[in-house]
Design a protein around this nucleic acid. Structure first.
Lengths: 200, 200
DNA sequence: CCGAGAATAGAACGATCGTACGTTTTTGTC
DNA sequence: GACAAAAACGTACGATCGTTCTATTCTCGG
């Protein structure tokens, strides 16, 4: 791999970590340069503009999310087990502080909600795909006869995601690690309530 | 009322509205002055510093939240009815866009999570008191024999708040008004599942 | 209706922001 | 090891930030 590419990734990794704490916009190029031990202009040369740096940072964070949450859950068998794996890995990813500010997308999505442009689009796309994937997993569990199919998969995904997000948000606010278990319990009990006994 | 006090409130009202969209920090004093039709220094004189302006803005938003959500729910009788009223008014408050950027606290809490100081403290205090009040209402409903007391009130409050927050967040992201009904349905069905039939 | 005090405005400050440009250092290839 | 390309650096720019100071305008009780 070219040196430039290695440097670029190191920059994006640092940028994603810092942005999860302070946000994408307040993270200035000067401070990011300082954090990576580079000069402002040397860092800037890797991206044509701050906006491009932000888009690249979101992409980098998205691929980390896939590595940490989606990919491991794909190893669980289709159906209820995978739904649970997705949610559990999601909570874990918040709890383990893969990003020091908790979930990168929870931290940055509010920031760009009212700021049209490629950065907002990228964040939207990522979150939408997460919700779609979760919903799809629920549908598979319903098709397998493991979850009650009379409750729309979209509703189930909405609720499971809500629990995971609330766990992340409340931990970032109050620093009480107990909220992660609260989130997991809510998810588990909601899934339990929708579970169908195999028709043997 | 003094002229200064009137001006101050108008400033804070504008500030809270703008901050719900862009955040407290990126809202600069110059732009706030422009939005209120004042000079930068004339506006600034009402507050000793930007930080004090932010704290005052949070306080103003908190009192609006009380007016819009807490106070009307207090008119419902103690018990399940009040729990439902709290949640319903919370979703309404997001949906009616009392603040143009949705819930003020959802928009600004992430911003200050990693920024110690009086602004963060004020936001924390407000959210904590909302969650406590909701939990307390659940406890009353349990004591009245309307909700299953075997599930900790804290868990119930966590889940109800999670649904309301998720509705707000997803609307701000995707602009699909349907998420508010999704949130209300999730809340209603969760309460329904915990409901006890009166022992006649 | 007048005068004291409150309220607002205007101009300027140092700092920091994103960005541009030219130079220097490093890298990888023949 | 020379040399072109790539990468990093140093410096400077205009703009905007929060804040300060002084001057002007407005408010309202006597």
């Amino acid at each position: 791999m070219r040196k430039g590419e290695r440097t670029r990734r190191a920059i994006l990794s640092t940028a994603a970590a810092l942005a999860s704490q302070e946000g994408l916009e307040p993270l200035s190029i000067g401070r990011l340069a300082e954090a990576t031990g580079m000069s402002k202009s040397g860092l800037f040369a890797h991206f044509g503009s701050k906006e491009e740096l932000q888009v690249a940072t979101v992409d980098h964070a998205a691929s980390m999310f896939v590595d940490e949450v989606i990919a491991p859950a794909r190893e669980a068998p289709r159906g209820l087990a995978r739904v649970w794996a997705l949610c559990d890995h999601m909570v874990d990813y918040s709890e383990r502080q893969v990003f020091p500010g908790g979930c990168f997308f929870a931290a940055t999505s509010a920031e760009f909600n009212h700021r049209p442009g490629p950065v907002r689009d990228e964040i939207q796309k990522m979150i939408r795909s997460w919700l779609s994937y979760l919903e799809h997993a629920v549908e598979q569990a319903q098709a397998a006869g493991e979850l009650d199919p009379s409750v729309p998969a979209r509703e189930v995904a909405f609720q499971l995601d809500a629990f995971a997000q609330a766990g992340n948000a409340q931990y970032q606010l109050f620093r009480d690690p107990g909220v992660f278990d609260e989130a997991r319990r809510a998810i588990r009990e909601r899934l339990e309530s929708l579970r169908l006994r195999p028709a043997a």
